[in-house]
């Protein structure tokens, strides 16, 4: 995990430095705000990864070791469904919600119903397997 959190830390601190220089030099608000928010976002990512890193007691994962073997990675990885109808239903719902922004509120009703139903299906799918 070291490379990963280091990357997030670098991004965050680089943005902080640029934000400071920009603020001191130009005094312009909107750009500074955006840079600071970028810095905070990656700072958050860094902190999260750092907690994961220490929760694992800094033991490197197989993919962090130069001499990791494929055998070390055997076992469960994650949940990978092979088919699911919920993404496309959610996509339809999202497009409905979006079209409501252009054409009027009645689209929102369709979009919201689809989105809500699909979200429930999506969230419960992993448990009901």
């Amino acid at each position: 995990m070291r490379g990963e959190w280091f990357l997030a830390l670098c991004t965050s601190s680089f943005l902080l430095v640029v934000a400071l220089i920009y603020w001191v030099w130009s005094g312009e608000v909107s750009g500074t705000v955006m840079l600071v928010f970028g810095c905070l976002a990656y700072g958050l990512m860094f902190l999260f990864m750092l907690t994961v890193f220490f929760r694992r007691k800094r033991i490197p994962r197989p993919e962090d070791k130069h001499d990791g073997t494929i055998e070390e990675g055997a076992g469960e990885i994650a949940f990978f469904p092979s088919n699911s109808m919920w993404p496309v239903a959610m996509g339809l719902g999202a497009v409905g919600l979006a079209l409501g922004l252009a054409f009027g509120k009645w689209f929102w009703v369709i979009g919201a119903i689809l989105m809500f139903g699909a979200l429930i299906g999506f969230a419960t799918e992993a448990e009901s397997r």
């Binding site: 494929i70 055998e71 990675g73 055997a74 469960e76 990885i77 990978f80 088919n83 496309v88």
Partner: peptide, 25 residues
């Protein structure tokens, strides 16, 4: 190499054609 086992994959309903395209992940 020993297979990197996946957590139980949902048994795929054998979708064909347009349905496979719509539901594939």
């Amino acid at each position: 190499a020993p297979e990197r086992r996946l957590t139980e994959v949902i048994p795929a309903p054998k979708n064909k054609g347009i349905l496979a395209y719509l539901t594939s992940t």
